[in-house]
Design a binder for these strands. Structure first.
Lengths: 233, 233
DNA sequence: AATGTTTTTATGTATGCACATATAAACCTG
DNA sequence: CAGGTTTATATGTGCATACATAAAAACATT
């Protein structure tokens, strides 16, 4: 039946994936246990384990102790987007990157911002607005609130030539966070900065980052019309 | 120094992550090799390997044979979006799901569609347009082209009560594909179907799926205004 | 100094074994 | 038969060992 012999976990993975795709093993169906597969493939159980674990992480399989392994009823529910630093994103496409600070103020953020960052309403924060350009065309508009209680050093930074994005990467503690994607209509000033018409549909990325309990920064990137985020499935 | 002793790979991972976050190991810096860490943590090298490999997959570390392991200079934030079947997405939020077919025709798709699907321009395909509703409010508009040469069975399906989305999951071969996210302004008919104003910014998800060389289906989901896709970072 | 060759080394992975753990299924027990 | 307890089992993980492999570093050669 299986002459080729599967010596490494990747070839096992390929074979299992082939069986799933061709429906030798149907959606929702159980597949043989690791020990049996190891015998069939002529390799160690740990090799099969590696292959199946990897497929489970990718969403092709559902695994539970004792219950066994089954083909996911609903395949690939996972799209992994890599959110790069905008400068890299642009440079990788062979375009010239440039940066332009639009505003820098110390002020009290709107209520929804301070609430999202879980800070008292009257807290003064640093607000930075800047434009990222690709080949001198507006690419993305960054609007950011920085919590000076967490990153006091930011107060001394002009962010004139270096984006807050990159400065924070280097100086703020690494942290977890949330990210949200949505679509919004361009407001008057946004339209002007991004050189598009008012009301144009813009792709928006909102990021909120935390250092343990304290919110570090809240940022919104508005991308110029037509922007796409793509990924292999 | 390290009394706790790290016995399992998750605790090793936690400790390494802690050192990255607190900048004991700075962005871009090399970290000790697996063997040394194994000694320090009092565990086997394979355990350290498991932890570091996992962190590398998550984007925190860059690893290269012989060169060693370094902290990612720029942690590529990998946002893993789970693209669920829309019905599940709605039901999970405790809302009532309903489905409404808007159109079903056999016709020749626009040139950009047949081109993207790599099919001859004159190929007749099945076009389905349908509305997904949450608590009877428009939630998403699905517009889909189905390649009947790959899934001939679709021709006999009315898609009156069962969405093409779910039918294809059950009947089309599993496959790879691409997914793209963008923002578009609502057109006249789209606005009417989604009960929003014309020109409103809509979140768009375009998916193109393949079975080896043949394109199975191309679909665009337009979500009602305000829709967000969120994920932990 | 430019080029090609060898060595060294850190990660990558396969294996056999042991034990941990979740949990489905079988077995009570009232 | 409902409810609780035990058992069996598939996955999950750790470890020691061995070897594979990529690529940096050292070395040799022209």
């Amino acid at each position: 039946m299986n002459s080729p012999a599967f010596r490494d976990w990747q070839s096992v993975q390929d074979e299992v994936l082939r069986r799933i795709r061709t429906r030798v093993w149907e959606p929702g169906a159980m597949i043989p246990n690791e020990a049996d597969l190891a015998v069939e493939f002529g390799c160690a159980r740990s090799t099969v384990n590696r292959a199946l674990r990897s497929l489970a992480e990718a969403g092709w399989l559902d695994r539970r102790r004792k219950a066994g392994t089954r083909v996911a009823a609903q395949p690939i529910a996972k799209a992994t987007l890599s959110i790069a630093v905008i400068r890299h994103e642009i440079e990788e496409r062979g375009q010239k990157y440039s940066y332009q600070r639009v505003a820098r103020t110390l002020s009290v953020p709107p209520l929804d911002v301070s609430a999202a960052m879980r800070m008292p309403a009257e807290t003064v924060m640093l607000y930075i607005r800047a434009l990222h350009l690709a080949d001198d065309m507006p690419y993305a508009l960054e609007s950011r609130w920085i919590n000076l209680q967490v990153v006091p050093g930011a107060q001394d930074e002009p962010f004139q030539n270096l984006s807050a994005n990159e400065w924070l990467l280097r100086h703020a503690p690494y942290s977890d966070g949330e990210i949200a994607f949505s679509a919004v209509n361009a407001g008057e000033d946004e339209a002007e900065l991004l050189a598009c018409s008012e009301g144009a549909a813009l792709f928006a990325v909102d990021r909120l980052t935390w250092d343990s309990d304290a919110s570090v920064t809240k940022v919104r990137f508005l991308f110029a019309p037509g922007h796409q985020m793509r990924t292999k499935l």
